[in-house]
Design a protein around this nucleic acid. Structure first.
Lengths: 362, 362
DNA sequence: CAGGTCGATGTAAACGATTGCTATGCGATT
DNA sequence: AATCGCATAGCAATCGTTTACATCGACCTG
């Protein structure tokens, strides 16, 4: 059985050799077969009301018989519209984004648009920016899930020729005025804090995402504000993290527990962080939730089945994607943007990683 | 002088804008500004060797200055090539596929191809099949991760005009002769069985995926064959499951433990099943791995952090995607397919969900 | 019955690139 | 000196649609 084979050679061969071999059937053939002009075929297909019922039926019969499809390039070239949208994620391999992508697809499908995807790394590899796709007319619009684009690209995205064709979702660059669709990160953290305070916790820690990320900031601020309201605060020594990844949750758990005074409740900026954190805690013999309570953020599918099942903040990622797509569509159709910031509600789902603060904590 | 030049350029641009009502700059503009013909611009861009160094530099300068991009539709129309590939997954929201998609992107990027994605549901919603995209020239090829396409669509995919433009990855329809890239499912299950037999286990159970799925079949067969080799067998009452989802693992755990005689080792056809299963077992007070050992399949990111960390069969999904992309590229370039079935090796990663069979089992 | 309206269709010009031919200029070969 | 070859660049056809405009009856109206 074979394992793999040289790729570079294929690439070169592809670039040099490939031509679409088969001669596809075109509108002219249909016209001839149906005994009408190409204009009539085109109209029968895209403006059925503009041709007589008999002609339409006749054309359709031929179209069906030969399984004809309009060549999308010729069409797009003529109408100057790609009928496609590009979604750019920081990392395609990160499962966190898959549901947002699915939501985008949901939003695009009713409008008959296609979905192109790419990730920031591949773009860099090709020395391209998503702007290229727009300029090359390959996509009508862009939904960007990466809030950390370089300034130069952001400038391009704000420039005249792509204005109104970009929506940010989930993450976004600050102070740029792009339309964005996001979850209510502050409210989410507030929910988490209130839940834990209600359980009697007074000693909090926070696991944050990467430095400079908007979500990191909003979630931290949300936590701090809610804690302040409860008369509590979050000393810097109680803030750890540095990415949304599992392994940092694991690592941070160790760091936190090594401190002289231990928190009884840990707020995590992602479920991955929370799962890593719990894993790290159990490694240290710290029990969740008996010794410390942990709450996550996102409510990924596995959250309900981790052990213990994770108390977390649910954000509806699918909906977020769909709404981003809808906003883009509306913006593409020339409608003036309603507001630039759309904030989606979140909710807390209480499972078993949180419990009343233990009285006997040191 | 610079001023004069700039203003003339602006006038030209303005006139163009005014006339056409669009801001896109075209090859004609570049040609005019560089003082050459469009043919030369085109050649400077795509066959740099065919123009003199001076001309090329001159053209490039103008191209850079105006940030010109070739209109991909005009180009695709002319060269009859989309430079894009469609990936079709059963369900975009399922994170299992995200890494395969990332791998596909990896394979496509060096060749400069774009990636379109869609899922089976959206296709149905639009009453389209992936064939449509190929016929409409929207994509050069298709990578299909859905092995359960209706027969009619499979017929279309095998038909003349799309022949050689399809590769199946991960899953595939049987008895059709399409090129397939897959993991070595049988060997994977054999690895799992051997590991457990080595730990002294004699009482096995198997959690399967959906009925009719190739992966379900191959993994079951792999398990059965390896067990047979060890002189063991798998009675029907020890086979449960019905999907790759977490919740079915959870449910199946209950079913299995309700049987009069309990297995000491559970083979799961996916990590999700395994995680659900462990969750279900712990619900019933059954400890993993002390009471029963569980092994998963896939090695998803969370597998290392579940509790206990999951012993599982790793399949390199990213590589699988990349190789599928490379096979498609090679096939598009007209090379005769080497062999239709490419099988990727898997390996077992032993963590803590498996242990020696307890002597004291009832 | 002349003139006007309207609906259905055809004609042909875009859309923006690529590329087979052809023309030109210039150095090398015989 | 005449010819050949080659590198370079332009001309114009072409890719497969859509759509503005023209055409042509049929029907209506005064």
């Amino acid at each position: 059985m074979t394992i793999a084979f040289a790729s570079r050679k294929n690439v070169i061969l592809y670039m040099k050799t490939y031509r679409r071999g088969t001669m596809a059937i075109g509108i002219k053939d249909i016209a001839r077969l149906a005994g009408v002009s190409t204009a009539t075929v085109s109209r029968a297909l895209s403006h059925p009301g503009r041709v007589s019922p008999e002609t339409r039926a006749q054309v359709m019969a031929v179209v069906e018989e030969h399984d004809y499809r309009v060549n999308s390039f010729a069409r797009s070239l003529r109408v100057r519209r790609a009928d496609a949208v590009l979604a750019m994620v920081p990392n395609l391999g990160n499962p966190f984004f898959s549901e947002i992508i699915a939501g985008i697809q949901d939003g695009l499908t009713p409008a008959g648009l296609d979905l192109l995807v790419t990730d920031s790394l591949s773009q860099q590899a090709r020395r391209q920016s998503p702007v290229t796709h727009l300029q090359a007319a390959r996509a009508d619009g862009l939904i960007c899930l990466d809030g950390a684009l370089p300034a130069g690209i952001l400038d391009d995205l704000a420039a005249g020729d792509v204005a109104g064709r970009v929506v940010f979702a989930c993450e976004w660059p600050e102070g740029r005025g792009f339309p964005v669709v996001r979850s209510d990160n502050r409210a989410g953290m507030a929910l988490a804090v209130q839940h834990l305070v209600g359980l009697g916790h007074r000693d909090f820690a926070l696991l944050t995402g990467p430095e400079g990320n908007v979500l990191t900031r909003e979630r931290r601020e949300g936590a701090e504000a809610a804690l302040a309201q409860a008369g509590l605060s979050l000393p810097p020594s109680r803030i750890a993290g540095g990415s949304f990844e599992i392994r940092d949750g694991f690592r941070a758990a160790g760091d936190l527990m090594r401190m002289p005074s231990r928190p009884t409740a840990i707020l995590c900026s992602s479920d991955q962080l929370a799962i890593g954190c719990i894993s790290g805690l159990s490694e240290l013999g710290v029990r969740v939730p008996q010794d410390v309570s942990v709450v996550g953020f996102d409510d990924i599918a596995l959250a309900a089945y981790s052990c213990p099942p994770l108390t977390t903040i649910r954000q509806d990622r699918r909906r977020l994607g769909r709404i981003a797509a809808e906003r883009l569509l509306s913006s593409l159709s020339g409608k003036p943007p309603a507001e630039t910031l759309t904030t989606l509600p979140v909710e807390i789902v209480v499972r078993r990683s949180t419990a009343a603060a233990s009285k006997a904590v040191k």
